[in-house]
């Protein structure tokens, strides 16, 4: 996979958006697995849409390898950044393969033809997510977890080194929460830059390499999970007076909530 070699550097400079985000500065490079955390309405989804180039910041800019995102066409952007929204419609009659093929939209010829390399990318993506057996299954027949996997396969088929996900595990059972996060972690090891909004703090601390804690549209903290998820931060941002401690088995951060 050539993804690791395509050095991706995603940067936000002084980004504000209609009173939802205020003066956000961030920079990540390839191979990182970033978790966006914060209460509902803190601006996580807005930040992701701005990172994806779907919404333009009212002030400030997003740069990809030094180039402003706003100067790129939608297709050009999609080849660099894949974005998976939170809601996956459930009544879709497309098959898994047809859906993953949509990830190649930006590569289609003007008359809509798919080149052989696109077909290969689709097969690879299905293979990476263990979906080859499901390729002809209809999306509406899949479980939520499988559908989310199809969504990630669509992002991989896109061939973009950056993948942004909006709460990919929030409606899944425990098996698929772990399954999806481990797959994303593996992708980041392969060189992808993964940025995901996530509500489960312990899982975020377990799998993400960096966390961004958003509070009222501002960055409260941006660092490694242990440095971000302090008791003070949980109190300030989530208004929960919880204790944090290291898991005796694996040393990852745990949160002990008040009784």
């Amino acid at each position: 996979m050539s993804v690791g070699e395509r050095c991706a550097l995603l940067e936000l400079q002084n980004v504000s958006y209609h009173g939802i985000l205020h003066d956000v500065n961030l920079a990540w490079s390839h191979g990182q697995f970033v978790g966006l955390i914060g209460p509902n309405g803190a601006g996580k989804s807005t930040l992701l849409r701005i990172l994806a180039g779907i919404w333009r910041p009212t002030t400030g800019s997003v740069y990809l390898n030094g180039k402003a995102l706003s100067d790129m066409s939608a297709r050009r952007r999609a080849k660099e950044i894949a974005y998976l929204p939170q809601h996956m419609p459930e009544d879709v009659a497309f098959t898994v393969e047809q859906y993953v093929e949509m990830g190649r939209y930006a590569y289609r010829t003007p008359w809509g033809h798919l080149e052989p390399e696109s077909k290969e990318a689709v097969t690879n993506a299905l293979n990476t997510l263990n979906l080859l057996d499901y390729r002809n299954a209809h999306l509406q027949r899949l479980s939520g977890g499988e559908r989310q996997r199809a969504g990630i396969a669509r992002c991989i088929a896109q061939g973009s080194p950056i993948i942004l996900l909006d709460e990919p595990i929030s409606s899944l059972d425990l098996y698929y929460q772990v399954d999806i996060l481990r797959r994303l972690q593996r992708l980041s090891h392969q060189g992808y830059l993964i940025v995901t909004a996530i509500h489960n703090l312990e899982l975020a601390a377990r799998y993400c390499t960096r966390l961004v804690l958003l509070h009222h549209g501002r960055i409260y903290a941006h660092s490694s999970p242990n440095d971000v998820l302090t008791e003070r931060a949980l109190l300030d941002v989530f208004q929960v007076s919880a204790k944090t401690y290291a898991d005796p088995y694996d040393g990852f951060l745990r949160v002990s909530y008040p009784s």
Binding site: I54, S73, A74, R76, A82, F94, Y105
Partner: peptide, 20 residues
């Protein structure tokens, strides 16, 4: 037609794959 395929499953999905 292909843009419509993606739009039919969601506008954000469509924007995510590069549909203007």
């Amino acid at each position: 037609a292909h843009a419509l395929d993606v739009i039919s499953i969601g506008e954000e999905q469509a924007e995510g794959v590069g549909v203007s």
